[in-house]
Design a protein around this nucleic acid. Sequence first.
DNA 1: AAACAGTGTTCAGTATACTAAACACACAAA
DNA 2: TTTGTGTGTTTAGTATACTGAACACTGTTT
Lengths: 190, 190
Amino acid sequence: MQTPPMIGKNIQRIRSARKLTLNVLSERSGVSKAMLSQIESDKVNPTVATVWKIARGLNVELNDLLEADDEPKRVFSLNPAAEESSKMEKKQNGITIRILSPLSMVEELEMYLLTFEPHASLESEPHYSGTQEYLTVVKGTVKVTVGDNTAELKRGDFLMYHCDTEHAIRNESAQVAIVHMVVRFSPDRR
Amino acid sequence: MQTPPMIGKNIQRIRSARKLTLNVLSERSGVSKAMLSQIESDKVNPTVATVWKIARGLNVELNDLLEADDEPKRVFSLNPAAEESSKMEKKQNGITIRILSPLSMVEELEMYLLTFEPHASLESEPHYSGTQEYLTVVKGTVKVTVGDNTAELKRGDFLMYHCDTEHAIRNESAQVAIVHMVVRFSPDRR
DNA sequence: AAACAGTGTTCAGTATACTAAACACACAAA
DNA sequence: TTTGTGTGTTTAGTATACTGAACACTGTTT
């Protein structure tokens, strides 16, 4: 980050998105609405404690209020021959699926970037015996259940499992979570 | 984050690691050394602006001072059969390579988590015609050069290229960068 | 129209973040 | 010993973050 954070804009934006009034946010966060108003209009230099309370009140991570909002992610390829690399995005049930791998690899190896809205979950029936999935958490935390095992993963954590048992990925937190997924279709048997 | 950040501890830790005195950090950051001392011993509730200045002085991201230090990442598998999944880690030239994929997949598909210290870079000669690499940035920013194309990637960005030209991944920033890499050995030709 | 209930903003007072300077303690050099 | 140079801490004063209350500006209801 090269430039001081625009906290005001961020709080303002998220508060509007949540459709909260200053009074409500004040109650939830324990910060006076006078202060909220002044912070949003960049009239003051809030303390970390105050911003942290606001983050709690908004159910976001502290960093989400301090970081520039550069979330929209670029996807591209340096190799012209593979430029067909699909930029497709599907959105459903609070989950945005971005397909990273080129179309030519379908049915062999696929890579996705999954964005989970708060409390979104992705449940899968057992399928494709032999297929494996590899998860790496890029942001936030998710809870992954495979059969009757469950694991809580945070950023940087990695998990691999076979898809022949039912499995689910859940974002039980109140923050957005992003996970990188590689699906490998079994090359050997079948 | 459930608990207010322990800014003091973080600053203290990083400053010691950098072997900086309060005077020096004060100069670099523009924050008085009196304030630095009080912040480190949790006697005050600093403003965001102040903490931001300190982050600049320390050459770290603002978030690194506010977040709990839970960086050590877990790697494991829910599938007992694949428990041989190597937890190997190599460290060299400021780059930590964690192998994610199970050993059984070697020579076919490999997955890594690469941690780049500030200014670390990974240069590769052209090799294995047909082999492809897929990068996803998990933290920070890196500059990737393939042949004479160069791209600056930030968190969430994805990039794919063929390995038959020389390529390099560089972390030119002053912060740690983490990238997820999938290497796919060409199945068709060869 | 008046009275109301909701919004966000501005005001006056107080608590405190922040600074410059003085301080205390270490270790080294004379 | 004294004198110095470095460390981090504490002090006193000023700037300002923060609060509760009053305010202004909607739109609705009677």
